[in-house]
Amino acid sequence: MSTDWRRLCRGPGLTVEDDTVTVTFENQRSHRVRIKETETTFELHALVARASNIAQPESLPLRIWRHNRAAQLVGFRLDTRNSVRAEGWVAKAGLEAQEFQHVLRRVAAESDRFEFILTGKDTE
């Protein structure tokens, strides 16, 4: 199944470059989301914060796992380098721009918000 995801993300505040979309918010902050295509899905990956930017990493795992119970459409995890990553996905079957952008903006917004909470910055 072939779908061009770039066609699906034409809209205000969305800038595409290679396999990455930069989502810019009303408050002028922004966040980058990388799109990865599989046979049946598009996966959306965002780096929330690198380990070196996080002030108190020890309490993070529990916080992230609790968040994952509550949140919808986007999940967080700590990777092997202790950076925080956000991930979402959409199924290609029946996919339309509105749905793609809904998940894309959610992944970006949640990542950006969590980045701010963890670092107070807007790096990613």
């Binding site: 996966e43 795992p61 992230i64 995890r77 700590l78 991930e87």
Partner: peptide, 11 residues
């Protein structure tokens, strides 16, 4: 969990 691309939830 670091090696799992899935959402781990804790209660």
């Amino acid at each position: 969990a670091a090696r799992t691309q899935s959402r781990v939830g804790a209660i």
